[in-house]
Design a protein around this nucleic acid. Structure first.
Lengths: 335, 335
DNA sequence: CTCCTGAATGCTAACGTAAACATTCGTGCC
DNA sequence: GGCACGAATGTTTACGTTAGCATTCAGGAG
């Protein structure tokens, strides 16, 4: 067994400094009304003993952990990972820390992750790119805990910080329409993810209201490989593709290149995410910018307010915008 | 103030089941020697009250948290993020959970992160892609805690799971040499990261022992943008580039394309990481495969063993290999 | 019937901290 | 000089759990 190796406690410090444990606690928590000499004696004792405050005990007694739990998806896609990372940074700046669990969509896994976080006394919960099974489990288990759903794009019943998925899709499609495209196919993410479904639905709405022909949806799984596969089943009449994330776009463009078709010469591609890679791919992608950083910051801001007991602000919608680069152009005359 | 909203405790369950708290605890921890009827009564009571075990209290009394702390870099690069993610998954499978903190290289930040993790009673620590300032802080603060340094590629003094950076570089350069390249320039990562330095050093050794001319090192910061910038300062005589990660390679290739130079026609590019994007970029990258998943798994395995008090196995070196794709070819006759 | 034994369960203390209340002490005022 | 008062510090208790020891109980041996 690993030895317990407990460090010095507040009591040891108190003894060494010749004060009561409570006084040490007060110094730790920056209470007013401690004589300067006393405080210094305590600080000195802490330094000498190499004292480290025990967050576990503190959490136990206060019921507050200053920790935000995060549940993310199991997949190593840059999008969700960026969001998680952004939350982590924003939380840190706000004086909070994060407890990260990723989980496969299996209900058992989700329940386990939730169990761990809740048992750990988190003060709030952030859900990133949730699989739908996660939503259900969370709704069942959460009591008063502040929760933010990130990026889902529209869950009116609870607080959520979302990118306005429909708005982003609209910007992307308007761009393609303005270029003159009439045959546009969609490569969606896995439809059991909220984002994927929202984007697909918004796409359909746009196609419908523009009176265009609807091509069958090709469902990918967010990965570059699935984008490549999608490129192989693309309808030959399509002059433009709206792809649900950048990674799939890369795969798609690769597949087209292998078929001897160029982007945007033969096919235009509009994408979603604006990951760092999309700025420098060949061609650089025209893509909807998702400001992960802003989302993370806003999420933490909302949560901190709710933790402090302030009334939760209404759902916040971050509006993404289209970054026009070189993967789109007008359709060929021949099309 | 947020209401405490404490859930039911072991005591509430005990009262309801008509047993002592200790018996409930025994049921929770799967002790032998509980009458079946009693156990069932307890389980029933837990279900009725929707009881959730408090990990905080448990940690406080046992001194073990079943949690592995992770410190990662502040940057949202896919490489380190993948590693963190892999550790998280491996830990979960081993019954552990993870506490993630990322930190800027500033000593204060690092100290704060460490403080948080240690105060939280983590059982072990994983360092991913450490900035050198992290190493120093960790060495100072860690006592008996099992630590694994991930991906640094050679820290003999402590247990570390590393990718054999030098081996990877060797594979990459041997490939270029075999193709006939003699003018090879390096784009390194920021040299205050261990990996960046190890790769740069291995590169130099290879160049030296092959008796080739040494071009000045161009130092990037792992991002695609810095790769693009590097592409603009490339020595015109270089027929091949060894770039320290995939993201910078993408930027580099973009810059070359903007100059009207093609890859691999005019310049060959060998890279490091084998991220999912590299399979489908144009051209697909020849790159050194880093098995983040394997590294994560191995790290957790080592840590679990050390937590259990077994003697730490010696440093483990994972050997990466070169994946040959289409970004390399022989030098032009004109070169 | 009593005693012993082992199985099942209960009781008490402890983990390290902070909240709430209690006490001490110095100081200024009458 | 005595008193009141606020500032500084101390004492007690609780948070939810588990370790360690104590107790109860049933059943078999003598």
């Amino acid at each position: 067994m690993a030895k317990a190796a407990r460090g010095p406690s507040i009591r040891d410090v108190a003894r060494r400094a010749g004060v009561s444990p409570q006084t040490v606690s007060r110094v730790l928590n920056d209470f007013a009304g401690i004589r300067v000499a006393t405080r210094e004696r305590v600080l000195e004792a802490m330094a000498e003993l190499n004292y480290r405050r025990n967050l576990t005990a503190r959490t136990l007694v206060t019921g507050r952990s200053n920790t935000i739990g995060m549940i993310g998806p199991d997949i190593p896609a840059i999008g969700p990972l960026s969001s998680l990372h952004a939350v982590e940074r924003a939380a840190r700046e706000a004086g909070f820390h994060t407890l990260l669990t990723s989980t496969s969509p299996s209900p058992d896994d989700v329940a386990g992750a939730l169990e761990f976080l809740l048992g750990r006394g988190i003060d709030a919960l952030v859900l990133v790119a949730e699989h739908r099974s996660v939503q259900k489990a969370v709704d069942a288990a959460i009591g008063e805990l502040p929760v933010v759903h990130l990026l889902t794009g529209g869950r009116p019943q609870r607080t959520s910080i979302s990118i306005d998925q429909a708005g982003g899709v609209r910007a992307a499609l308007e761009h393609l329409l303005a270029l003159g495209h009439r045959c546009i196919q969609h490569i969606s993410g896995p439809l059991d993810y909220s984002e994927a479904q929202l984007r697909r639905d918004a796409f359909r709405d746009m196609i419908f209201s523009a009176g265009l022909e609807e091509f069958p949806n090709i469902e990918g799984d967010w990965t570059t490989d699935s984008g490549y596969a999608a490129g192989q089943q693309l309808d030959p009449r399509a002059t433009a593709v709206f792809s649900a994330n950048d990674q799939m776009s890369f795969g798609l463009i690769h597949a087209l290149a292998d078929q001897g078709r160029s982007v945007p010469g033969d096919v235009s591609v509009v994408s979603f995410d604006d990951t760092p890679e999309s700025r420098h791919s060949l061609p650089p992608l025209t893509t909807v910018h998702q400001d992960f950083e802003a989302v993370g910051k806003l999420a933490v801001k909302v949560l901190v307010a709710r933790i402090a007991g302030e009334h939760a602000p209404p759902n916040d919608l971050i509006v993404p915008w289209l970054v026009e680069r070189s993967s789109t152009a007008g359709p060929r005359a021949s099309a």
